[in-house]
Every structure is written in structure tokens, then in C-alpha cells.
Design a protein around this nucleic acid. Sequence first.
DNA 1: AGGCAGGCTTTTA
DNA 2: TAAAAGCCTGCC
Length: 272
Amino acid sequence: MRIRISDDFDLQKIADSGQCFRWERMGNLWRIPHRGRCLRIESAGDAFRLACTEEEYTDFWRDYFDLSESYERIRARIDPGADPFLFAASESGKGIRILRQDPWETLITFILSQNKNIPAIRRSVRLLAEACGDKRRDAAGESYFAFPGPEAILSIGTEGLAACAMGYRAKYVLSAARAALEGRFCPEELMKMDGKSAMEALTALYGVGKKVASCISLFGLHHLNAFPRDVWIQRVLEREYPDGYPYEAYSPYNGVYQQYMFAYIRNGAAVS
DNA sequence: AGGCAGGCTTTTA
DNA sequence: TAAAAGCCTGCC
């Protein structure tokens, strides 16, 4: 099917934004795995061609891409005169969206992200999916791996996880899988919680601190006000907002603005 | 209580 | 060799 998307929607910028690590680009075509499916999507002039039915798009992929939200409107809340830095970042990051990713996959992915750069995260997540994910075929018959659930992850054991280049993070992944399988932790339950309760439930997990919990809240629970503070953001806040970042004024979209700033500084924007 | 130092696996530049 | 979308433990 073909669709036109008038709101912000740039696949490359989303893929580079550090929220998802399993998208694959082959020329103009993207393969995007999500909840046991894998979409083939390519830009076609001023529209996009998706290898799925209209119903599947409406019921599944539209939600994943968060297309009922207007990111143009979220950007328009920024006052260029009052906050030129965030405005410049949002102009540069125009096209970024916050995906509605699977909470479990987001949890494991961001446990793995600590002390790794993006290529290393991609590699580790790919190895994990290949090691114990379900092998399936997309609409073109090309194979991909679904993201493994807790049971599949436990089935390959410590050695299997170590082979996925997880290093010391393997024990965190193992612990989360056990907690999920034994019912002490339920990723889907998180979706029903408010921001604070979700953060508490996440940081209670072994190996999950505030930074990773914020990422999971933003990218896996769609709490758009979650505000991950990594070393980059911390640095930029100190330089650009010496009198304090106006967090309250930017509620409830702080997470979106954080993504613009993150992409902006990572792309080499002058920070001084 | 809250802050700080050191350690941790591996990859990347 | 240092740094990388950090967290845990022990110590004060």
C-alpha cells in the first residue's frame, strides 16, 4: 500500500536517534522488526510504499510510528526567541518521532546500551536475536529474527548470552528474564503505571539505573515527558542552560525535546 | 542520607 | 589508549 505522511517522518533520522537498534537499511528500503513482524517500507516520491495491507497499517504500524501524534505541533511549542538552542535543535531534528516500541525489547536493549556506543549496541542486540529469537520471513520472503522473550533468553544460559558480546551486562539481562518469567516483573503492567511508579519498578531491576529507566520510559512506555540524562545531555544542559533547564515549561514533551538535543549534539553541533 | 571512587566486558575511533 | 545513551558495590 501507499500512504502520504504530512507530519514529521524521517526514517533515517529516527534510525539514527538512538531509540531503536534493529532497523536495517538497504538503499531506499527499510526493514523494521516490531512485535514479531517485520515491515518493508520505502519512500516513493512524496509518499511511502509499505509491504502490508491497509488494515495492518491502520491496526499496527501506524501505532508503532505514533502517527496519531503531531510532532509538528510539539515543535511549535518552542519559542525561537526564548530558547534559540532548542529551536535550532528541533529544526535540525525535524522528522524524528518517538516510536511505540515493545517494553520488553526496550528494557533488554537499554540494559545492553550502558557503556556501549551505538554500533556496539546494534551488534549485541542482533547477536541476541540471532541466538534465540524466532526466525521468520517478511512479506518478500526474506528472513529476520523476532526479538526473544524471557524464556528464549533463559534457554541459552549465561554462556549463550556472553557470546552476544554483553560482557558484565549478561547478568542483568539474565536477572530481568528470570523476574519476568517468575511474574515478579511484568513489562505490560508498566504500561498502566504513571511515570513515577514505572520508574520505581524499572530501577528496582538489577542493572537498571535512572538513565536506563528513563530511556525505557520514553522509548518503551511512550512517556513523552521522561528525560534521560546521559553524559551528553548533562554537558549540554550545563553549557546552554546555566540557570537551569526549564523542565516544567516543556512538560509534557520533555522527552521529545531531549531527543532533538541529543541528535543535535551527536551530529556535531557546536555546544560551546 | 547522599556523594564519590573503582571495577566491569567489549567495541570503536 | 581512551571513551562509550552506566550501574553496582563499598566506603565515608
